[in-house]
Simulated scan of single mutants.
Amino acid sequence: MIRHLVLFKLDAGVERDDPRVVAGVDAFERLGGQIPELASWELGWNISDRPIAYDFAINSSVADAAALKTYLEHPAHQAGVALWREFSTWVVADYVFE
């Protein structure tokens, strides 16, 4: 299995209730049911107020590298990424686990 973690940082001046952010969250909330290759799908707002904390996280898993590639290239994923690109930056980690 591969764990796919993504941490998002909203750009300066962008708040959670910004319509673009609301649309981005909605797009990602729907991904779990749209992409069969996703073995697990979790997301949510960070509850930490530490200065180094990111704002939003996605925690998902897929069976293998081929499934990860399919997920990353899926049109629904690409559409969500395009939304988030407008108001945030992010970091990604993909690792193998049992």
Rank of each mutant, 00 (worst) to 15 (best):
V6K: 00
I2E: 09
G44Y: 02
I58F: 12
V81N: 11
G32M: 05
L38R: 08
H74G: 01
L10F: 14
D55R: 08
A82K: 13
H4S: 06
W41S: 05
G24I: 06
R85Q: 15
E86A: 13
G32D: 03
F8V: 14
S60G: 14
T89H: 11
R16V: 04
A66Q: 12
S88Y: 08
H77C: 04
D11I: 01
V22C: 00
Q78R: 15
V14F: 03
L5Q: 09
I52Q: 12
L68Q: 11
P19F: 02
V14M: 04
D11N: 15
K69R: 15
A63D: 13
V6D: 02
G44A: 01
I35W: 01
V62M: 10
A79Y: 05
V81S: 06
K9P: 04
F28P: 00
W84F: 13
A39I: 09
T89V: 08
P51S: 14
A39L: 14
D55V: 07
R30Y: 02
R85I: 07
K69Y: 04
A63R: 15
E86Y: 00
F87P: 03
E37S: 11
Q34G: 04
Q34N: 02
K9V: 02
G24K: 07
V81E: 13
I35Y: 01
F87D: 01
R30A: 15
A23E: 11
K69M: 05
P51A: 14
P51T: 12
A66Y: 00
Q34M: 12
Y54T: 11
D49T: 13
D26S: 14
D49L: 11
L10M: 11
T70C: 01
G44T: 04
F8Q: 08
A39G: 12
A79V: 04
T89R: 13
H77A: 06
D11H: 14
W41Q: 09
T89I: 00
T89Q: 10
V25M: 11
V25G: 07
L72A: 15
D18E: 10
H4G: 04
A79N: 08
E86F: 01
I58P: 01
R50D: 09
F56C: 08
G44Q: 05
R30W: 02
A39C: 12
R85M: 11
V25F: 07
E73R: 10
A57Q: 07
L43K: 10
V25A: 09
D55F: 08
D11A: 14
A12S: 10
R85D: 15
W84C: 01
S40C: 07
D64S: 02
V22W: 01
W41F: 13
D49R: 15
A65I: 05
P36Y: 00
P75N: 04
D55S: 10
V14E: 04
S61W: 03
Q78D: 09
S88K: 07
E29L: 13
E37R: 08
L68Y: 12
L31G: 06
A23L: 04
H74Y: 07
L83E: 03
I58E: 05
D55P: 08
S61E: 13
